[in-house]
Amino acid sequence: MNIPELKIGDLIAKVPIVQGGMGVGISLSNLASAVANCGGIGVISGVEPGFNLAHYHRNKFQANIDGLTYHIRKAKELAPKGIIGVNIMTALSNFEDMVKVAVKEKVDIIFSGAGMPMKLPELAKDSLTKIAPIVSSGKVARLICKQWDRKHNYLPDAIVVEGTEAGGHLGFSVEQLEDKENFSLKKIVQEVLEAIKPFEEKYARKIPIIAGGGLHDSKDIAEILSSGASGIQMATRFVATHECDASDAFKQAYIDAKEEDIMIIKSPVGMPGRAIRNDFIKKVYEQGKPKGIKCINCLKPCNPKETLYCIADALIQAQKGNFEKGFAFAGAKVYKIEKITSVKEVINELMEGLKNL
């Protein structure tokens, strides 16, 4: 098949792949710039990007602003001609401040999910930064378009549709995750395309759909592009690369993962999440709250008194390879990853495969 360019306004990605944002610290400037240099859209995670800074535990708020600023500048420096995005979860307690930082640093595009980013157009107005909500249904896509149209006279520059097989926090109930027939990515993409039609007609412009969740190879990509998506989002495939910002131990957890190791957990933020089973998860869910874990107040929905563990702390520990105190989120097809390679090799393999389909 012919490989389409992904056009988001005046942004044109030669490779129609958006690298999904992965926190904490899995996709920072190193991974994002590598993807951008290969023609895709590289994405920095906005979840606790200052976790490695010396003043993080003294002044977490400032450290995260400093961390995001640093990684946007670094990614732009490493990929001067590439497209750099930031993924900022609506559920973050410092959501608005992080968006303002991204806009100030002139990031190319902000992706925002884990809730409905109703204030995003207001925070990004009068800037060249594109904004793209992440949705899991046609209903949510319609709601966001309706609200943005009515309140801001603005439509999303793109919409990311994240399906049931994605890694990390998922916008579905456990029952929906098990209903493969009614909640396939292809079906959700078609529902979203239908839901946004009236808004596209009103504004006389197309909203590109970027779809992801469990995509692993060229055939997966071809199927989603043929269902009407303009591009795809891929995250898990980019973890086992030399350029990924995670520790070697984190990458090894992906390579070692078997299909039966992939599980759905209930995250402290009240959403299901897809993770790789390990001893930390077993202990937490069988024996209760571990000792010595303090809440670092990162997410709005989290209630420290009721949660079994601090999600941010667990992900920071895992990023560093300390799996006794943390775990790794991953997509449904992580078990298919067999070795560490480069971002360029991953993208070349996918694009060559597409050409031959």
Results as ranks from 00 to 15, higher is better:
D126V: 03
L11A: 09
K180P: 07
F238M: 04
E194K: 13
F250P: 07
A195D: 03
G273Q: 11
P121C: 04
I26T: 10
L225W: 07
H71A: 04
V43M: 09
T236P: 08
I293L: 10
N297R: 13
E223F: 10
E194I: 06
C244G: 10
K130R: 14
D179S: 06
I44D: 08
M22G: 01
G39Q: 03
A235K: 02
K186R: 13
Q319F: 02
G9L: 01
S267Q: 02
A275S: 14
N348I: 03
A235R: 01
V107Q: 04
E259S: 15
A275H: 04
I265W: 01
S230G: 08
K76D: 02
G171I: 08
Y285Q: 03
E223Q: 15
H152V: 05
G113R: 05
L123H: 08
K206W: 10
Q319W: 04
A13Q: 00
R277S: 10
Q252W: 00
L92Y: 01
I221G: 13
F183M: 10
M89D: 00
K300R: 10
R150D: 08
E96H: 13
R274K: 09
I221T: 12
H57T: 12
M89E: 03
V101C: 04
K294Y: 13
Q233L: 14
M118D: 14
Y70W: 12
L193H: 07
M351T: 12
N153M: 12
L6V: 06
I88N: 10
E181K: 15
L308M: 04
K119L: 15
E77P: 00
L11N: 07
D220K: 14
C298T: 14
N94K: 09
D256H: 14
A330K: 05
G9T: 03
C298W: 02
S33P: 08
G212H: 13
N153K: 15
Q252C: 08
Y335T: 08
I88F: 02
G39T: 02
E324T: 11
E48M: 05
K339E: 14
A158Q: 11
A204S: 15
V140W: 08
A63V: 05
S112Q: 02
Q190E: 15
D248Y: 06
F51C: 12
A79V: 05
N64M: 09
R237F: 08
K202T: 13
E165V: 01
E77N: 13
K320R: 15
C298D: 09
A158D: 09
K206G: 07
I83H: 05
I296C: 12
